[in-house]
Simulated assay, not measured.
Amino acid sequence: MAARETKPNGKSQLIRDLKNGEFATLYIISGEESYMKEYYLRQLRQKVVDETFADFNLIEFEGKGLTPEMLTEAIDSYPAMADKKLIIVKDFDLFKPPAGFADVLPSVLGDLPEYVCLVFYYDVLDGKPDKRTKLYKTLEKRACFAEFAHAEEQELVAWLERRAKALGCMIEPGDASYMIFLCGNSMTNLAGEMEKAAAHTTTGVIKRYNIDAVCSPVLDAVVFDLTDAVTAGRFDRAVALVGELLAQKNNEVMIFTAITRHIQRLYAAKLCAENRGGEKQLMEMIGSKSPYYARQIQNAARRVPLSWLRKAASLCAETDAALKGGAADRQKQIELTLLTMAAELKGEKK
């Protein structure tokens, strides 16, 4: 049965298909950015299925309970009073399927009827294809792989500006970048934080103080403040932040992993500066797509000597081993390491 060739950029193909109203028989939607995945799944529901006949032409399965018989029956039944039917399967591991699917999937997915629009949607599972498998070779020819990664900072800033406008406010690009730094790059999370900031402003302009007043910082942003407190000699503030993170149900290993990662990024920024590396090079070194974050790391790294960063990195490695080795009081272990870091820095500055 004829099928369209896979386009090089599956995300662009999905967007084009929705615009043109011409749909592939098979989509595989995955990626980190839940907001965009959910948006385009909603669009498929609206565009492929007439709501009047949704009871007949929209079938949804959870991957965990799916059987080969359920899938083939859904595919083989014709749509009612329509040209297409939509079948959505959520979190089904195509490349490590349950028993009974191995022989079925290549033949079924390789010859889907034109009246079917089948979507494998990944929310909890990552949905990354295993290109070594026989099934992948079939899907490569037949499926549209639409992967939604987190947007670049420039895209997110423009999107936040549009969100603010829709809420009757405005936000400057610098303040939008700060919101991304504080709240993370998840569009789902940022949408909620933007609503809080818009409700807080009394001037119609969302400023940094509105964001600080009502928005919830992600772990990396709190750790940034925590490390700044250590380097500024404000040990009490650093300990208080550890307590706040624990109260928010972050475990000690997770918190200290974030601290270690931050120290490593400061070290990378220091080395990059000493070798006259630019912002782009630093972003590659620290694995960040955010120019704003890279500049913040650069500024923080300027305030501490390289020798201290080496010692701090060594302390982090020792503490990480102790925490994972079953330290009796993990919170105290973290606090002791932060105190040692602060003392070492004070000695460096004398």
Results as ranks from 00 to 15, higher is better:
305 P>W: 08
291 P>V: 07
327 A>I: 02
346 K>P: 02
344 E>V: 05
68 P>V: 08
177 S>P: 06
187 M>R: 02
11 K>W: 11
213 A>P: 10
46 Q>I: 08
267 Y>Q: 10
59 I>P: 11
213 A>Y: 12
336 L>V: 14
149 A>D: 13
49 V>T: 11
198 A>E: 01
23 F>Y: 00
111 D>T: 06
147 E>C: 12
246 L>M: 09
315 L>Q: 13
70 M>H: 08
205 V>D: 12
295 R>Y: 09
124 V>K: 14
180 I>N: 12
167 L>Q: 04
80 A>L: 15
208 R>E: 05
131 K>D: 00
46 Q>G: 07
39 Y>F: 15
200 H>S: 06
184 G>K: 06
37 K>F: 09
57 N>A: 11
18 L>T: 08
224 F>T: 08
145 F>P: 02
241 L>E: 02
151 A>G: 07
128 K>G: 00
89 V>F: 10
110 G>Y: 05
144 C>D: 01
298 Q>G: 14
85 K>H: 13
55 D>N: 11
142 R>Y: 09
321 A>F: 13
201 T>W: 08
327 A>P: 08
350 K>H: 02
80 A>M: 15
19 K>N: 04
272 C>H: 09
175 D>R: 00
157 V>G: 00
11 K>E: 10
266 L>T: 05
68 P>L: 09
350 K>R: 10
247 A>E: 04
199 A>W: 12
5 E>W: 09
188 T>G: 07
220 D>P: 04
316 C>L: 10
294 A>C: 01
237 R>W: 00
200 H>N: 13
261 R>E: 14
185 N>V: 07
171 I>A: 07
80 A>T: 14
87 I>T: 08
110 G>P: 00
121 Y>S: 08
128 K>W: 01
148 F>K: 06
13 Q>I: 07
98 P>F: 00
34 S>F: 06
107 S>T: 12
124 V>M: 13
185 N>A: 01
131 K>H: 07
52 T>W: 10
209 Y>T: 10
48 V>I: 06
83 D>Y: 00
7 K>E: 12
296 Q>H: 11
168 G>W: 00
288 S>K: 05
118 L>Q: 03
136 Y>W: 10
298 Q>K: 14
122 Y>A: 03
212 D>Q: 06
236 D>E: 12
245 L>I: 03
256 F>H: 07
17 D>I: 00
302 R>I: 05
96 K>L: 09
101 F>M: 09
217 P>A: 00
318 E>D: 15
147 E>A: 14
216 S>P: 07
263 I>Y: 10
81 M>H: 11
26 L>E: 03
279 E>Q: 05
70 M>G: 03
346 K>L: 02
205 V>M: 10
